[in-house]
Amino acid sequence: MNDNEHSHTISVLVENEFGVLARVSGMFAGRGFNIDALSVAPTTDPKLSRITLITHGNDQIIEQILKQLNRLVDVLKVVDLSSEERVRRELMLVKIRSGNHQEKIQKILQAYSGNLLDQEKNIAILEFVQEHDKNNEVLTQLGDFEILETARSGNIAMQTGKKILAT
């Protein structure tokens, strides 16, 4: 990222129809914008889905991203949460070779409110739910272990207080 580029978390409310994700990701690809992370799931209203996008760029690029998202017919609402008070969380699963260091693992789990989801012989799967940057910290802490794989959802986010994402 250059100096004038910033990471942005964008929430998008869309019609819950096939092809909508392709329209959104296709717009990014076609115009040369980047997607750093993306998650999508239906809302409590089954006709609608919520997409959370992490992207980066300078102010002009972010403005274009917001405008071009708004142009898509299936997009009902777009909010750049970076300019709002919000909470953000990412789910991260980490598979490690735990060896004989159960104590150290327990310490890390405690420090970051993680869970041990699975333990088979000396292979463990750990779960962490916190901000993306905090999860990066966990990976540093796990540096002594062999990390076999990670799966991360990317941040999802929500405005604090009474503000909601609705049409």
Binding site: F18, G19, A22, R23, G26, G30, V73, D74
Partner: peptide, 14 residues
């Protein structure tokens, strides 16, 4: 064709 024409239509339907 819906996939092919997605970037060159205002909207499309299958």
């Amino acid at each position: 064709i819906v996939g092919i024409t997605r970037p060159c239509t205002k909207h499309n339907y299958l």
